[in-house]
Design a protein around this nucleic acid. Structure first.
Lengths: 146, 146
DNA sequence: TGGGACCATATGGGCGTCAATGGGAGAAGC
DNA sequence: GCTTCTCCCATTGACGCCCATATGGTCCCA
């Protein structure tokens, strides 16, 4: 699996570290990446994490918009200026900084959520709520997956 | 048989495992799959299980939309983040995790329900009720095909 | 037609491995 | 010198793999 799929919740230890699920670590190292880039999501109260190619994704998104629009400006500010680098320790853990805590509401546990080409850090209950909401929205739209 | 048909109920053992019916296992191994992807159904209190092609179907649907829209984000959250991988042990059993239990209400027994290209996990009595309901609905509609 | 052997599936439990977690010590920065 | 971060090692608990047993059904043969 070279993509980020599924989800898992891990505990933050006394030093503020949390283990990245092994499936995600495998996907990261498979891409040969040791340093990850992360920034605040545009839609959800979550922090997105990925390799350098994650920047490409948002540059594509920005390219899809008028480069001088407000939206493109804000996106650049958040992605280029607002992002931070995160390193994994030899055991595959990362430090949960205030940058992450403040935006997500994370305090003691982190839910890692696969998003295909990247993954996200969520406060566990916020993730549960967002899922319920997304499901409700789909029902309202009457869209069926099949 | 390369499709999932009929239904069967098996007991969860002390370690939280349950045997996948042999007919379903045959259909799975015929596709050469050892790792299954499963996620919560959009309509019923059931967990859907299938091979990677189940994921492909959702991704095709996502690809049809604006990839950066809210709708696509929510879809990704449910499909990429909401699913979990399930492995079968050498005897063809799977672990019934809390992810499955909480959503379906399964506690001691699991009803496996074939759905053509995938199958589902149900709490036995919930499945019985859903069948009765479906039958009633059809009667009300005068047995017209949809 | 009845009994018995055989086979496949389902089920139960032991054990090793690995991921997650906790804590200590050295190194680097304030 | 104190704090903070990084690396290293220990612990533990869950999960995957293995082998053993039970149960029900089918086939064969008397």
């Amino acid at each position: 699996m070279n993509r980020f799929l599924s989800h898992a919740t891990n505990r933050i230890d006394a030093k503020g570290r949390v283990s990245v699920p092994s499936a995600f670590r495998a996907a990261v190292s498979e891409a040969g990446v040791r340093e990850l880039y992360c920034f605040q999501d545009f839609v959800f109260p979550a922090v997105s994490v990925g390799g350098p190619e994650l920047l490409d994704r948002f540059e594509r998104q920005m390219a899809a918009e008028d480069p001088f629009s407000d939206a493109a400006n804000q996106m650049s500010l958040l992605v280029h200026g607002g992002g931070v680098f995160v390193k994994l320790d030899p055991e595959g853990r990362l430090m949960v900084t205030d940058f992450i805590r403040d935006f997500t509401g994370i305090s003691t546990d982190v839910t890692f959520v696969g998003r295909g080409d990247h993954f996200q850090l969520w406060e566990p209950r916020a993730f549960a709520r967002a899922q319920v909401e997304a499901r409700e929205r789909r029902k309202q739209r009457g869209l069926r997956p099949e």
